[in-house]
């Protein structure tokens, strides 16, 4: 069965293109443009994987990351960013429950492999 995957980003094109690509890889993709919408979607669809932009219009990506991690320990949380992150930021993100970081633009093959790896690890937990 297909795994649910939630993409939270304020850029609709990015959300959709990423969703289409990951759909090819066999994920059922949901999309959210804001943090609030993202949290609602997560409650509704219980995604196994959430790809979160660090900067969202209504909240910090880290905040949602923390909220989502509280709801599920198995959920794979991947943070997206367009800029360099300092090691402090990265450390903080990991501390709040993030599993990985990806930098735009993505190497989509690599991304697919990473998601699958993280998923399989999460299932074994």
């Amino acid at each position: 069965m297909k795994e649910n995957l939630l993409i939270v980003d304020d850029d609709a094109h990015l959300r959709e293109s990423l969703a289409e690509v990951l759909d090819l890889d066999g994920f059922k993709c949901f999309q959210a443009g804001t943090a609030k919408e993202g949290l609602e979607m997560a409650k509704l669809h219980h995604p196994q994987v959430v790809i979160l932009d660090i900067q969202l219009p209504d909240s910090s990506g880290f905040q949602i990351c923390q909220d989502l991690r509280r709801t599920s320990k198995q959920m794979v949380l991947i943070m997206m960013t367009g800029r360099f992150l300092s090691s402090e930021e990265k450390t903080q993100g990991f501390g709040l429950g993030a599993d990985d970081y990806i930098t735009k633009p993505f190497d989509l093959k690599e991304l697919s492999v990473r998601i699958k790896q993280l998923l399989s690890r999460a299932k074994n937990k």
Binding site: D11, H13, L14, S17, L18, E20, V21, L24, Q55, G82, R83, F84, T103, K104, P105, F106, L108
Partner: peptide, 17 residues
């Protein structure tokens, strides 16, 4: 970083698709 990498990412995704 924000405003160009985003469209770049979209283009990249679309091309991949």
């Amino acid at each position: 970083g924000h405003e160009i990498r985003n469209p770049l990412a979209v283009i990249n995704n679309s091309v991949y698709f």
